[in-house]
Design a protein around this nucleic acid. Sequence first.
DNA 1: GCGTAATATTTAACATGTTAGTAATTTAAT
DNA 2: ATTAAATTACTAACATGTTAAATATTACGC
Lengths: 167, 167
Amino acid sequence: MTPPLPRRNLPLLLLQTREDVIARFRPILHAHGVTEQQWRVLRALAEDAPQPLEPRQLGAACTISSPSLTGVLARMDELDLVAQRRDGTDARRVRVTLTARGRALVRRIAPRIEREYQALEVAIGADVLRDAYALLDRLRGELRAAAAIPGTPAVPILRSRDRPKRR
Amino acid sequence: MTPPLPRRNLPLLLLQTREDVIARFRPILHAHGVTEQQWRVLRALAEDAPQPLEPRQLGAACTISSPSLTGVLARMDELDLVAQRRDGTDARRVRVTLTARGRALVRRIAPRIEREYQALEVAIGADVLRDAYALLDRLRGELRAAAAIPGTPAVPILRSRDRPKRR
DNA sequence: GCGTAATATTTAACATGTTAGTAATTTAAT
DNA sequence: ATTAAATTACTAACATGTTAAATATTACGC
C-alpha cells in the first residue's frame, strides 16, 4: 500500500533551512536589540537609500504583510529608527525613511553581518552558497512563471461540508 | 566606496521561496480549515503513525517552538484532531496521538496535496524540484556540520551601549 | 536518603502573522 | 460633476512566534 504522503515536505524543508541560516545571524541582531523583521526593514531602506519607500513597497521587499508592517513600523517609529510622513500629492500614501539613528544602527550592524557571511562561506563552501542563490532564483523564477499562467487551477473546488468549522 | 551590505539576503530569499511554494498549497489547507502549523503537526503524526510523539519531537520535526506548540496542540485538542495524555512512567512527558477525526482529515487532505505536488512538478520541471531537494539537503548538511564544530564564534562580543533599549 | 542539577512542559509578556473588514482617498466611468 | 470602483493604509480578532521565567518531575552525586 502506497503511503498517503509520498512527497517530502518542501515548504517545511525551506523553513528549516532558513532557520539554520538565520540562526547564525540572529545573535548579531539580538545584540543590537533589533528583531529580524526590523532588520529586514532597515536593510531595505538602507539599500534603497536615500529614497523613501512606501509601506507596500517595503512589505513586498521584506515579505511582511500590510497589517504586520503597520505594527513593525509603529514600533520602529517609537524607537526613532524610521520616520513616517504622509505624501503631499496623495494623502493615502505614507513615505518611510531612515532616521539618523536608524542609519547609524545599520552602519554598526552591517560589518558584522558581512563578517558572518564570510564565515558562512568558509564554513559551508563558496560553491554551495553560490549554488544556493542560483537554485533559489531558478525555483522562484519557475514558480512565478507558473503562477502567472495557471495551467492547473491551484484552488480546487470544494464543498463546504469538507471544511470543519473553527470552534 | 563599497556598499555596506554587499551580500544578498539569504534568509530572506529562503523566506520568499517558501512563501511562493506554500502559496500553492495554502488554499487546500484553508479549504479544510487547518492552519499551516496544524497541517505540519498532522503530517508528522501521520507519517510516524501509529507511534505517539512527544511535544519536543513534534517541535523538532515541525520547527515549532515549545511554547508555540503548547497553544497549537491545545487548539487541535479542542478540535478533537489530536489527543494528549501523560506518560505513565514519566509524569513530565506528554504523548500526542492522532484522533480518528485527525486521521480522517489527513486522509481527505493528503490526496489533494499529492495532486498539487504533481502539478508543481509539471509547472516548474521535475529536475528543478529534484535539484531543490538536493541543494537544500546539502546546504543544511554543511550548516549543521559547521554549527557542530564552531570554527568562528557565531556570537560577537558586544558592549551594552551598542544595544538600544526596547522601550 | 537528600539536596541539587537536569529535563519537560507550561505560563507570561510581548512581537508578528493571519483574514476580514473599515476608512479615507483617488481614479474612472458614466 | 457624480457615483461606483479601485487603492492605500489601518483596525480588529485571533493564531503563532519570541525570550525568559516558572512549574513539575526525574535523575544524580554524595
